[in-house]
């Protein structure tokens, strides 16, 4: 028999290599080809509408050239599509600039609604990484029908805001308002709450995520100049570059609300300290947030550390007479007020 283990191994590794090249996540040839077959006119139309909607909302103008620069399709396709869109009266030309018609605006609003609802869905009901929400929603916004969208909304309890803090348009096109100022423009000493974190561009969003800055946190600005913005939140100081800070929106606290000065994250609790819970950060969502509430992590509950696991994560906390183990990243989303040391 002409069999040689070396050849057998070589053939085997050859096969492994080929299947790796074909199927490796994202850039595998199989996926690349599959994706190229997918883009079609509907997607281009909807992306154009959405882009114009966002530009108009920001009070800016956009011409054809700028538009095609901001989208990932080639110019020819876009020109063709725009021609068609003016014919079916989704948009008009105002000199150089493109403007949405009423029906174009309605259509755009619907797309935005699906996008934000889907992000909300991903955040609440699935375990996908934050970095993936946007791309997945970009995909999904072209797929869901009216009925499916409304079902989804009901199922999510008709949310007003998406997980980044953007308002979700209702079925009838009603949009809750989002008031606030960019973190980068706040004066030193201002006190407020993070209401929105922009998820584009990716590079900046990644930095914000890496800092573990949470939506809903109360903050106080400590320093603000050309080099950096420093603020205090949940017992920690955060330092950001101004362009990063410009992607975070803050509403100033109302008169009757006051900044909790001793607020900290549960993850910062030490072995011999006792604390009481203030609340759960908005960053904790969906079923896992509910589960925490069910387990008694509610305002006013006393909490202390019961046990540390061999790796130091998770930690078991003693709350309402029971020891409950949580991982660090969950604990960092529970806000506490530290009290007296209980001196064990």
């Amino acid at each position: 028999m002409n069999y040689n283990p070396t050849y057998a191994l070589l053939i085997f590794f050859g096969l492994v290599l080929i299947s790796y090249l074909l199927f490796r996540p994202k850039s595998g040839w199989f996926w690349v080809i599959k994706n190229n077959l997918k883009s079609n006119e509907k997607i281009v139309i909807e992306d154009v509408l959405k882009q114009l909607y966002h530009t108009e909302n920001a009070g800016k103008d956009m011409n054809l050239h700028q538009l095609s620069n901001s989208l990932k399709f080639d110019e020819r396709t876009i020109v063709d599509v725009i021609k068609k869109m003016t014919i079916i009266e989704l948009l008009t030309f105002d000199g150089e600039n493109l403007k949405l018609t009423d029906s174009g605006r309605d259509y755009a609003l619907r797309i935005v609604r699906v996008h934000r609802l889907w992000e909300k869905y991903l955040a609440e009901k699935t375990g996908f990484d934050k970095m993936e929400w946007h791309d997945r929603a970009e995909d999904m916004e072209h797929k869901l029908s009216h009925e499916e969208t409304d079902l989804l909304a009901t199922h999510l309890g008709n949310p007003q805001y998406d997980p980044h803090g953007d308002p979700i348009p209702t079925k009838l096109g009603k949009v809750a308002d989002l008031e606030g100022e960019f973190l980068s423009s706040l004066k030193v000493g201002s006190v407020g709450r993070i209401v929105h974190i922009e998820d584009e561009p990716d590079v900046i969003y990644k930095q914000i995520l890496a800092e573990k800055i949470h939506i809903g946190s109360q903050i106080r600005v400590i320093e603000n100049n050309k080099e950096r913005v420093v603020f205090y939140a949940e017992g920690q100081e955060f330092v950001l570059a101004p362009i990063v800070a410009a992607n975070i929106t803050i509403t100033l606290l109302e008169k009757e609300e006051s900044l909790e000065e001793n607020m900290a994250r549960l993850s910062s609790l030490k072995d011999n300290e006792e604390a009481s819970i203030i609340g759960i950060s908005k960053e904790s969502r969906g079923d896992s947030r509910r589960r925490l509430l069910d387990l008694g992590f509610v305002r006013g509950a006393k909490i202390s550390i019961d046990l540390e696991s061999p790796f130091g994560n998770p930690i078991a906390y003693l709350i309402k007479g029971t020891s409950i183990a949580l991982r660090h990243d969950q604990a960092s989303k529970i806000l506490i007020k530290k009290g007296i040391e209980n001196g064990k």
């Binding site: 509910r290 589960r291 509430l293 387990l295």
Partner: peptide
């Protein structure tokens, strides 16, 4: 069950 409120 800990609760009947969630949908888990």
């Amino acid at each position: 069950t800990y609760s009947l409120l969630s949908t888990s």
